[in-house]
């Protein structure tokens, strides 16, 4: 049989368990002392309250967590876009750079006029890696225009441990 905490005083409680603060307050006199015959919360009441609170608060936490991950993902994609865009734009705009074929190579390994400091491009943030790939193409044969197919790939590991990547491509006029 369920008993209220006031059983110690010998009273049983037959009322509904959800009497609320007002009910409990009414069980006290003006000096805050429990009045004789006032009832407390039953264990069941507390348990149910905890369950209900758990059911309602958990999704809230999940929502906050998901949105945080989404925000971080957006931040990472934004950074990756910026890292890729600045690098490929710098290469395209460097008039004195003689392009050459490059297999997928990390930006820090590039040397000569394609080195980051020569191009005026900042390094990527910690956790990111940036790669350049240049492929010479002459789709119109030897008589036509020659160009390079540039692909910049930025890779990073998300907080979840998953590895992500973002690629950007552009055609560059051959300067040779």
């Amino acid at each position: 049989m369920k008993k209220s905490v006031s059983e110690k005083s010998g009273h049983t409680c037959s009322q509904a368990p959800f009497s609320g603060r007002a009910s409990r307050a009414s069980q006290r006199d003006g000096d805050g002392r429990r009045r004789p015959g006032a009832r407390g919360l039953t264990f069941t009441e507390v348990l149910i309250s905890v369950v209900i609170i758990s059911i309602t608060v958990t999704p809230v936490f999940l929502l906050f967590s998901t949105s945080r991950r989404t925000t971080m993902a957006a931040r990472d994609v934004s950074r990756a876009t910026s890292f890729a865009g600045s690098y490929i734009t710098a290469i395209a705009g460097a008039a004195n750079v003689r392009l050459r074929e490059v297999a997928k190579t990390e930006d820090l390994s590039m040397d000569g006029l394609m080195a980051l400091d020569k191009l005026g491009v900042e390094k990527v943030h910690k956790g990111f890696r940036r790669f350049l790939e240049l492929k010479k193409i002459a789709p119109d044969g030897e008589s036509g225009s020659k160009a390079y197919h540039a692909r910049v790939t930025v890779e990073w590991t998300a907080a979840s441990g998953k590895t992500n990547s973002y690629s950007m491509e552009r055609l560059l006029n051959a300067k040779d």
Partner: peptide
């Protein structure tokens, strides 16, 4: 917050697509 963060992600994705589109057009 989730809605806005998702919107932010969508926006970032659109921006990154736009950047790709720009680089393709610029090339």
């Amino acid at each position: 917050r989730l809605y806005f963060s998702r919107e932010q992600l969508n926006q970032v994705n659109r921006i990154s697509d736009y950047e790709r589109s720009y680089q393709a057009a610029a090339g």
